Simulated scan of single mutants.
Amino acid sequence: MIKTDVDLMVKFLRGFSDKTRIQILESIKDQEKTVSEIVEDLNGKQSNISQHLACLKGCGLIVGRQDGKFIKYSLRNQQVRDLLTMFHTVFEEVQTDIACCENHIE
């Protein structure tokens, strides 16, 4: 991979690197939702959720569909859904190692 490709890959992966963004992706994994529905699911603030939705949309992970006066958000495609499922699968296998890792402490 050339440097530009690596930089874009890192930018893409940032879409998954925030707790709220992961929660949003999980919230819309199985059905499209409006901002208000996502805010309710996450018990969050609309302005914060909207900022994260913009990031996810900018990373190409989600799409918005106009439905009357509302925009309904969903995952971009089945591949994004599959990627989330794969994250869960890999996480189950490595979660003990992650819990013990001292290199990436918050």
Results as ranks from 00 to 15, higher is better:
Asp97Pro: 00
Gly64His: 08
Gln78Gly: 03
Met86Glu: 09
Leu53Trp: 04
Val39Asn: 04
Lys19Ala: 11
Gly68His: 03
Lys11Ile: 07
Lys3Met: 14
Leu25His: 07
Lys3Tyr: 07
Thr34His: 07
Gln78Asp: 14
Lys33Ile: 11
Glu32Asn: 07
Thr20Glu: 09
Ile98His: 01
Gly44Arg: 02
Asp97Ser: 05
Ile105Cys: 00
Glu32Ala: 05
Leu53Pro: 02
Lys57Val: 00
Ile2Leu: 12
Cys100Ile: 04
Glu40Phe: 14
Gln23Glu: 15
Asp82Lys: 11
Leu25Met: 12
Lys19Pro: 00
Val6Ala: 10
Asp97Val: 01
Ser50Pro: 02
Val10Ala: 10
Ser50Asp: 12
Lys19Val: 10
Ser27Pro: 09
Cys101Tyr: 04
Met9Lys: 07
Leu42Cys: 09
Met86Ile: 02
Leu8Ser: 11
Tyr73His: 12
Cys59Lys: 15
Cys101Lys: 01
His88Asn: 08
Leu8Phe: 11
Asp97Tyr: 03
Tyr73Glu: 01
Ser74Gln: 06
Arg14Asp: 09
Met1Ala: 14
Ile28Ser: 08
Leu83Pro: 01
Glu32Asp: 08
Ile105Lys: 06
Asp18Ala: 08
Ile98Cys: 00
Lys19Met: 07
Asp67Arg: 11
Ile38Trp: 01
Gln78Phe: 07
Leu61Ala: 08
Thr20Leu: 13
Thr96Arg: 06
Gly58Val: 04
Gln51Leu: 08
Val80Trp: 06
Ile98Lys: 00
Ile24Asn: 06
Ser47Trp: 01
Asn48His: 14
Lys29Glu: 06
Met86Pro: 00
